[in-house]
């Protein structure tokens, strides 16, 4: 039991405890308890600033950022994890902010496009996107840039991808790798070729 409390979670411990995860319907005949409140407090750090919110539990991280914190740089393109326009970086990882609830991010460190740079002080990737015209309508752009920032970290950390030649060697920043890794960010204007140039420049890929 001690192990459980500490989240050491040995297999035996879990089995004994009868805990589990994911997609349960409650056991039939379970005794109903008073429902917890549908409004939930949550606090996290956004772009280095601590934010405390009390939210309808249904509020996605995307809507919390856009509607409650008014950080509208993060875009809602599909709201179903199918386009990548809502990409933000949470605890160093890029995610689709539309497919996660804000209240699931207690204590998290969130970086949005507003946290990367400003018009008068662009992040190197933002500057590269301008230089290489890595956008057209601009709507997917914040998501592309947030995604690219975290993607380059993933590459640096040696995470493999679908197009990696082998699983055992360190992946290189080839065109094929960059394209595959950015494929979760759709650009309907079709700026891919230019976005690729922008990312290559920042990644230090030789032409």
């Amino acid at each position: 039991m001690q192990a459980l409390e500490e989240n050491g979670v040995s297999r035996r411990g879990v089995l004994i405890a009868g805990a589990g995860v994911i997609a349960a319907t409650a056991a039939p005949g379970a005794e109903a308890q008073p429902m917890p409140q549908a409004t939930v407090p949550v606090s996290f750090e956004v772009n280095g600033e601590r934010r405390e919110l009390t939210l309808d539990a249904r509020t996605t991280l995307l809507d919390a950022l856009r509607e409650h914190l008014r950080l509208t740089g993060t875009k809602k393109g599909c709201d179903h994890g199918q386009c990548g326009a809502c990409t933000v970086i949470v605890d160093g990882r890029r995610i689709n902010s539309c497919l996660t609830l804000a209240v699931m991010h207690e204590g998290a460190k969130i970086t949005t496009i507003e946290g990367l740079g400003r018009p008068d002080r662009l992040h190197p990737l933002q500057a590269a996107f301008v230089k290489h015209d890595g956008y057209q309508c601009g709507y997917c752009t914040p998501g592309q840039i947030c995604s690219a920032v975290a993607m380059l970290d993933e590459l640096k950390a040696g995470l493999p991808s679908h197009v990696s030649e082998t699983l055992t060697e360190r992946p290189q920043a080839t065109d094929a790798e960059l394209r595959e890794r950015m494929s979760g960010n759709i650009c309907r204007c079709g700026a891919y070729s230019n976005i690729q140039e922008a990312i290559r420049e920042v990644a230090g890929v030789r032409a």
Binding site: R66, G73, I113, E114, G117, P119, D133, P142
Partner: peptide
């Protein structure tokens, strides 16, 4: 020429309709 609205678009500060708080 680089787009004059480039810094707005790349920083998420270009206001699209659904952003208009």
């Amino acid at each position: 020429t680089d787009r004059i609205d480039g810094p707005l678009k790349t920083t998420g500060t270009a206001p699209y309709a659904n952003d208009r708080h």
